[in-house]
Amino acid sequence: MLENLTFVEHFQIWLRAFLILSLFSFLYKDNIFYKFSEHIFAGLSAGYYVGLIWRSVIVQQLINPMFDNSEWWLVFPGILGVLMFARLKPKWTWVSRVSLAFVIGNTAGIYLISSLHGMIFKQIAPMMVSVNQGDGLEKILLALLVIVGVITTLVYFYFSKEHKGALGVTARVGIWFIMIAFGAHFGYTVMGRISLLIGRAEFLFYQWGGSLTQIF
């Protein structure tokens, strides 16, 4: 149960409850309350980005180090950042490509290594298991299941050759694996979406309900 709430706390709870119910009202049909909340939500979210980037990038990463620590070379990434805004004028879009190339080039370098070293090699390695007699049937079955599943899944997603003959049979087994895995994924997705609703319902029930009982 909630402790005695102050006027401000009551107001904060009621404000949130109003916005939540306004958005949920869309489930019945589109209406003015939903539109009102939806547009405020879009604006605030966009404003959040501006505030965050102003504080964390422009002030903390550019202005403060430049003026407090005389790190004047930071003017270069600052210029590269400002050049991004050239995209807003179609005539000047080409200018922004310099900054874009810098970011994309760097990110491509990181992705190349992380994909090969961190994903492919590290995911293939655990399939090279040595099975011993003492391992038990469950472990052997599981190891086999994973190896067969990985190969058949990759074959299913290989579209450069028509899925006929041995390739077709392998791809067919791949579909069964994929269906089971996607079924599990669907089950998890349902679970996730329901959890989010529970979060909102708990707020309305415990917090708004608590405020209601204190007022009335």
Partner: peptide
């Protein structure tokens, strides 16, 4: 996982949403 754990060898555990978990 693919950058920090793989390249810098530090243990990583995770708590993720149900959609990401599988």
């Amino acid at each position: 996982i693919s950058i920090v754990n793989a390249q810098y060898d530090i243990r990583v555990g995770s708590g993720v949403t149900a959609v990401v978990a599988p």
